[in-house]
Design a protein around this nucleic acid. Structure first.
Lengths: 120, 120
DNA sequence: CAGGATCCGCTCGGATACTG
DNA sequence: CAGTATCCGAGCGGATCCTG
């Protein structure tokens, strides 16, 4: 148990699987994008509008990373103008199960946290 | 649902509780520290040694932030040399429940993710 | 429409040195 | 022992402009 997060095991495979996985989706946008893709397929621009405060640059980068890690599936339709749709893969969907539990927790407890924060 | 992460609701309270909470523990060390504190009380230097690759600077900063948000409790003993012990608060313990589900998921799926990653 | 390329500021986080 | 102060580099992420 105490070694779950240990970082000194191997040289080739990533030392700690948990840090390996969580560090990559711990950026500012990954979780939000995955959650926004839940139960639907959506195009790049629509996703951009829905999230609102993300730059197209970061949306593109983050989608690419999530695709590379296997969380999402990108489908290109050979049309003009081009159409590209994003959806969760099976892996992405399975990830949202524990993630939704965390989201629920955050919803339930953010008031307590803000209260503690203000007490300084 | 689609508005869970929305960022345009209010001006005073944080717009999105989920982003509010998750953004703050989404740094490099918070989750690892909380997990390391699970089911025990531990001193600063012991914590530092156990995590290994964190600087004392960041350990101190992150502990302070986690304490301020109410996740952990800091107890000072008036001795010489000084002794300070850290432990999870009730909030911190309750947070680890959904978090552990995520950790389990990461453990179960990191191989699939690394495989997808290497297929490029 | 769906992005890539470029530039650039800002924050995260490490190293080191110092303090009560 | 348990931190704080200072300095600094690397990379995240935004803005803008360009392309197929």
């Amino acid at each position: 148990m105490t070694k779950q997060f240990d970082d000194t095991s191997s040289q080739f495979d990533h030392p700690c699987p948990i840090r390996d996985v969580l560090d990559r989706i711990g950026d500012q946008w990954s979780l939000l994008i995955l959650k926004t893709l839940e139960n639907r397929t959506i195009r790049f621009t629509a996703l951009h509008k829905e999230i609102g405060d993300i730059s197209r640059q970061m949306l593109s980068r983050t989608l690419k990373k999530l695709e590379k890690d296997g969380y999402i599936v990108r489908t290109i339709y050979a049309e003009t103008p081009p159409r590209v749709e994003y959806a969760l893969s099976d892996l992405g969907q399975s990830f949202l199960k524990p993630m939704n539990a965390l989201i629920t927790w955050a919803n339930d407890n953010h008031k307590a946290i803000n209260l503690a924060r203000r007490k300084s």
